[in-house]
Structures are given as C-alpha cells and as structure tokens.
C-alpha cells in the first residue's frame, strides 16, 4: 500500500530526491500535500499536483500504486 511521489525543479532540490516512495496512501491529494509539507517543510500552496500524469484537485482521491507529481508553476517556452 504505497504511492510514488515525484518532485520537480526547486522542489526536487529542496527535498534532495526527485522520487520518493510514500509508505501509505492518504485519502486525498490535499491530505497528502499536508503530510508532505510537514515532512519536508515545503510550502505547497502554489504547487500543482498531477496523479498518474493528469492534473488533479486537492479533493481528488488516491489509490495504492498512484504516481503523484508535485508541479511548481511551469516556465517552459
């Protein structure tokens, strides 16, 4: 019962890893964000979230095996 977390750009540098296995499955994206904020001391209020490569809102449910990516405001182009 675990999920995979991906951290990009400055988040990856602050966490120190780009990929982390999270040992349990919070009910929602919002709950996971709170746990990740507490664990790493990262403010995630301006960070988007994608579940299995689709943007997801904070009330989106999580399932075992999901990949959750934390996506800071993008700057491509």
């Amino acid at each position: 019962m675990m999920i995979r977390l991906l951290f990009f750009a400055h988040l990856g540098e602050q966490v120190g890893e780009r990929q982390v296995t999270w040992p349990h499955v919070p009910d929602t994206v919002g709950k996971l964000k709170e746990e990740v904020e507490a664990r790493y001391g990262l403010p995630l209020d301006r960070v988007m979230t994608a579940v299995n490569e689709e943007y997801a809102r904070d009330d989106a449910p999580l399932q075992p095996g999901d990949t959750v990516a934390f996506i800071p405001p993008v700057s491509g182009g």
Binding site: F8, A9, H10, D45, R46, V47, M48, A50, Y55, A69, I71, P72, P73, V74, S75, G76, G77
Partner: peptide
Amino acid sequence: IVPIWKKEQWEDGSAWIGDQLETKAY
C-alpha cells in the same frame, strides 16, 4: 499547462523561474 521548468544561471547566482517570481498562483 506543460510541466517544463527553466533554471536561469546568472553571473551572480541561479534560480528556477516560475516560482521565485511569484507571477502565478494556483
């Protein structure tokens, strides 16, 4: 919407763009 980020390297430092400028909030 496309998850791509650029990091600027200046003569006196570097920064990921998109977050520090705080031009966007979600």
